[in-house]
Measured scan of single mutants.
Amino acid sequence: KYLVLALYDYQEKSPREVTMKKGDILTLLNSTNKDWWKVEVNGRQGFVPAAYVKYL
């Protein structure tokens, strides 16, 4: 498993997404889509914009 760092705040806009705050450390679950990565944060799984996170 990889960890990624939230570069920006992101507010979920659909039930498939998750909210994150700048500085959050997220567990990367799937990065096959170049635009949306599946992550786990605070016990929830969902998608965030790939451009908003970077590998640690």
Score class of each variant (00 low, 15 high):
residue 1 K to T: 14
residue 1 K to S: 11
residue 1 K to H: 13
residue 1 K to Q: 13
residue 2 Y to T: 15
residue 2 Y to K: 12
residue 2 Y to V: 15
residue 2 Y to F: 14
residue 3 L to E: 07
residue 3 L to F: 15
residue 3 L to Q: 12
residue 3 L to V: 09
residue 4 V to C: 11
residue 4 V to P: 01
residue 4 V to D: 00
residue 5 L to G: 03
residue 5 L to T: 09
residue 5 L to M: 14
residue 6 A to N: 01
residue 6 A to S: 06
residue 6 A to E: 01
residue 6 A to L: 03
residue 6 A to H: 02
residue 6 A to T: 04
residue 6 A to M: 02
residue 7 L to M: 11
residue 7 L to A: 06
residue 7 L to H: 03
residue 8 Y to D: 09
residue 8 Y to I: 10
residue 8 Y to T: 10
residue 8 Y to K: 13
residue 8 Y to A: 13
residue 9 D to Y: 04
residue 9 D to V: 02
residue 9 D to M: 03
residue 9 D to T: 05
residue 9 D to H: 05
residue 9 D to G: 06
residue 9 D to E: 05
residue 10 Y to K: 01
residue 10 Y to S: 01
residue 10 Y to A: 01
residue 10 Y to M: 01
residue 10 Y to L: 01
residue 11 Q to Y: 14
residue 11 Q to N: 14
residue 11 Q to V: 15
residue 11 Q to D: 14
residue 12 E to C: 11
residue 12 E to D: 05
residue 12 E to T: 08
residue 13 K to S: 11
residue 13 K to Q: 15
residue 13 K to C: 10
residue 13 K to N: 10
residue 13 K to L: 10
residue 13 K to T: 14
residue 14 S to C: 09
residue 14 S to R: 09
residue 14 S to D: 12
residue 14 S to F: 06
residue 14 S to E: 09
residue 14 S to W: 06
residue 14 S to N: 13
residue 15 P to S: 12
residue 15 P to F: 09
residue 15 P to G: 10
residue 15 P to A: 12
residue 15 P to D: 13
residue 16 R to W: 15
residue 16 R to G: 15
residue 16 R to L: 14
residue 16 R to K: 13
residue 16 R to V: 12
residue 17 E to D: 06
residue 17 E to Q: 12
residue 17 E to N: 05
residue 17 E to R: 04
residue 18 V to D: 00
residue 18 V to Q: 03
residue 18 V to M: 11
residue 18 V to K: 01
residue 19 T to C: 06
residue 19 T to A: 07
residue 19 T to P: 07
residue 20 M to D: 00
residue 20 M to Q: 01
residue 20 M to C: 06
residue 20 M to L: 09
residue 20 M to P: 00
residue 21 K to G: 05
residue 21 K to A: 09
residue 21 K to R: 13
residue 21 K to F: 11
residue 21 K to M: 11
residue 21 K to C: 10
residue 22 K to W: 03
residue 22 K to E: 08
residue 22 K to M: 08
residue 23 G to S: 04
residue 23 G to I: 01
residue 23 G to N: 07
residue 23 G to L: 02
residue 23 G to F: 05
residue 24 D to I: 04
residue 24 D to T: 07
residue 24 D to M: 12
residue 24 D to C: 06
residue 24 D to W: 10
residue 24 D to L: 04
residue 24 D to F: 04
residue 25 I to C: 06
residue 25 I to M: 08
residue 25 I to G: 01
residue 25 I to S: 03
residue 25 I to E: 04
residue 25 I to Y: 06
residue 26 L to D: 00
residue 26 L to M: 14
residue 26 L to A: 09
residue 27 T to M: 13
residue 27 T to S: 10
residue 27 T to R: 14
residue 27 T to D: 05
residue 27 T to E: 11
residue 27 T to N: 10
residue 28 L to D: 00
residue 28 L to Y: 02
residue 29 L to Q: 04
residue 29 L to Y: 05
residue 29 L to T: 05
residue 29 L to I: 15
residue 30 N to H: 08
residue 30 N to K: 07
residue 30 N to F: 07
residue 30 N to P: 03
residue 30 N to D: 15
residue 30 N to W: 08
residue 30 N to E: 14
residue 31 S to L: 08
residue 31 S to T: 12
residue 31 S to E: 10
residue 31 S to N: 15
residue 32 T to E: 14
residue 32 T to G: 11
residue 32 T to Y: 11
residue 32 T to I: 10
residue 32 T to A: 13
residue 32 T to K: 12
residue 33 N to Q: 09
residue 33 N to R: 10
residue 33 N to P: 05
residue 33 N to E: 10
residue 33 N to D: 15
residue 33 N to V: 05
residue 33 N to A: 09
residue 34 K to Y: 08
residue 34 K to W: 07
residue 34 K to V: 10
residue 34 K to C: 10
residue 34 K to H: 11
residue 34 K to Q: 11
residue 35 D to I: 14
residue 35 D to K: 15
residue 35 D to C: 13
residue 35 D to A: 12
residue 36 W to L: 04
residue 36 W to P: 00
residue 36 W to T: 02
residue 36 W to H: 03
residue 37 W to R: 02
residue 37 W to D: 00
residue 37 W to L: 08
residue 37 W to T: 04
residue 38 K to C: 12
residue 38 K to N: 06
residue 38 K to L: 15
residue 38 K to A: 10
residue 38 K to S: 08
residue 38 K to I: 14
residue 39 V to L: 03
residue 39 V to M: 02
residue 39 V to K: 00
residue 39 V to F: 01
residue 40 E to I: 08
residue 40 E to M: 10
residue 40 E to P: 00
residue 40 E to H: 06
residue 41 V to E: 03
residue 41 V to D: 04
residue 41 V to H: 14
residue 41 V to T: 11
residue 41 V to Q: 10
residue 41 V to L: 15
residue 41 V to S: 12
residue 42 N to R: 11
residue 42 N to S: 10
residue 42 N to P: 05
residue 42 N to A: 10
residue 42 N to I: 04
residue 42 N to V: 05
residue 42 N to Y: 09
residue 43 G to C: 07
residue 43 G to Q: 07
residue 44 R to A: 07
residue 44 R to W: 03
residue 44 R to C: 05
residue 44 R to K: 12
residue 44 R to L: 08
residue 45 Q to P: 07
residue 45 Q to D: 07
residue 45 Q to R: 13
residue 45 Q to H: 09
residue 46 G to V: 04
residue 46 G to Q: 01
residue 46 G to R: 02
residue 46 G to P: 00
residue 46 G to K: 02
residue 47 F to R: 03
residue 48 V to D: 00
residue 48 V to Q: 00
residue 48 V to A: 03
residue 49 P to M: 04
residue 49 P to W: 04
residue 49 P to K: 04
residue 49 P to I: 03
residue 49 P to L: 04
residue 49 P to Q: 02
residue 49 P to D: 01
residue 49 P to S: 02
residue 50 A to L: 02
residue 50 A to Q: 06
residue 50 A to P: 04
residue 50 A to Y: 03
residue 50 A to G: 05
residue 50 A to S: 13
residue 50 A to F: 02
residue 51 A to C: 12
residue 51 A to I: 11
residue 51 A to E: 11
residue 51 A to L: 11
residue 51 A to M: 12
residue 52 Y to E: 02
residue 52 Y to L: 12
residue 52 Y to R: 06
residue 52 Y to A: 12
residue 53 V to K: 00
residue 53 V to F: 05
residue 53 V to P: 00
residue 53 V to G: 01
residue 53 V to I: 09
residue 54 K to W: 10
residue 54 K to F: 11
residue 54 K to N: 08
residue 55 Y to D: 09
residue 55 Y to G: 08
residue 55 Y to Q: 13
residue 55 Y to I: 15
residue 55 Y to P: 14
residue 56 L to N: 06
residue 56 L to H: 09
residue 56 L to F: 13
residue 56 L to W: 13
residue 56 L to Y: 14
residue 56 L to G: 05
